[in-house]
Design a protein around this nucleic acid. Structure first.
Length: 274
DNA sequence: CGGTGGACCTGCTGGC
DNA sequence: TGCCAGCAGGTCCACC
């Protein structure tokens, strides 16, 4: 579900609701996510205030008044909702953070691939626990030069490369197929063999696709929801993802579905060249 | 180090 | 109607 645009959509909404609020109570119903939820560290946040909301790659960062940061990753099926106090929790509502205005930040994640941790950022505000992440795709640091340099000698398919969070952050399975379709690059193409011009096009397109998706509130396939429960509208804009067998919007050839790196991949065999 | 394939977990869908 | 295989937006780890 949540690639960068979905996380940014959530972050933007939380940014207008959370800063200034105090945490009054923490309820944990299930600790077993990708890593166990740090129960004690979360309990220690009670009575602290939220001072800001940030996003890094697909991670949501909630900065706390004690200098720590609550890190949330939504995995495949995670959602964050702002509910009213007293709204009954459902089956996969693993974590509630009660706020001093009667609202509740509720984390739900049926598949439990999500992640919740409490960390101390370094002096630059960076979260070292997140490991070596590529620069933000919408920053200038993520440039044609950067992409070209990093991809030389790499034999992996371009689709794998742009989904590798050490090289490019924020692009997941949907936006990878979409970006490659728009640039007419076949997903199986060896990334190291892309010339400078196609690298430039791809970088530019990744930025465009992510920006457009943010502007429309992300993509809802089934699970993703904005914090008020509404769906993201970018699903209507998808040109290849989930369209196997349908005619290509450019040339009419049926869209093909293949598996690369264990993930479904959609492309037009006619207009996407090696 | 680079690349690949499976594991993690639950729910839904489609085919028989 | 009922069952079961297959599939799902993401990491992470073991293996070559």
């Amino acid at each position: 579900m949540p690639e960068l645009p979905e996380v940014e959509t959530v972050a933007a909404a939380l940014r207008s609701h959370l800063p200034g609020r105090q945490l009054t109570e923490v309820t944990i119903r299930c600790e077993k996510l990708r890593r166990p939820i740090p129960v004690k560290a979360l309990q220690n946040l009670v009575n602290e205030a939220i001072v800001g909301v940030r996003r890094r790659a697909k991670y949501l960062l909630v900065d706390i008044s004690d200098g720590q940061t609550l890190v949330i990753h939504l995995g495949m099926t995670g959602t964050l909702r702002l509910t009213d106090k007293g709204e009954t929790a459902e089956r996969h509502d693993h974590l509630d953070l009660q706020l001093d205005n009667g609202k509740c930040l509720r984390f739900r994640d049926p598949r439990k691939f999500g992640l919740v941790m409490v960390v101390k950022p370094n002096a630059q505000g960076e979260i070292e626990e997140l490991g070596k992440l590529a620069p933000e795709p919408l920053s200038e640091e993520f440039s044609a030069d950067y992409f070209y340099r990093l991809s030389r000698q790499r034999t992996t398919p371009v689709k794998n490369f742009i989904m590798d969070q050490r090289r490019v952050v924020g692009v997941g399975n949907i936006y990878a197929s979409e970006s490659l379709f728009r640039t007419r690059i076949r997903p199986t193409t060896t990334v190291g063999r892309l010339g400078q011009e196609r690298c430039r096009q791809l970088v530019k397109t990744i930025k465009e696709v992510l920006s457009e998706a943010i502007a429309t509130g992300g993509t809802t396939i089934s699970d993703f929801r904005q914090v008020d429960g509404s769906e993201g509208a970018f699903a209507r804009e998808l040109q290849v993802y989930g369209r196997a067998g349908e005619p290509c919007i450019r040339c009419g050839q049926p869209i093909e579905k293949i598996v690369i790196g264990g993930r479904s991949t959609f492309y037009c065999p006619q207009c996407q060249k090696r």
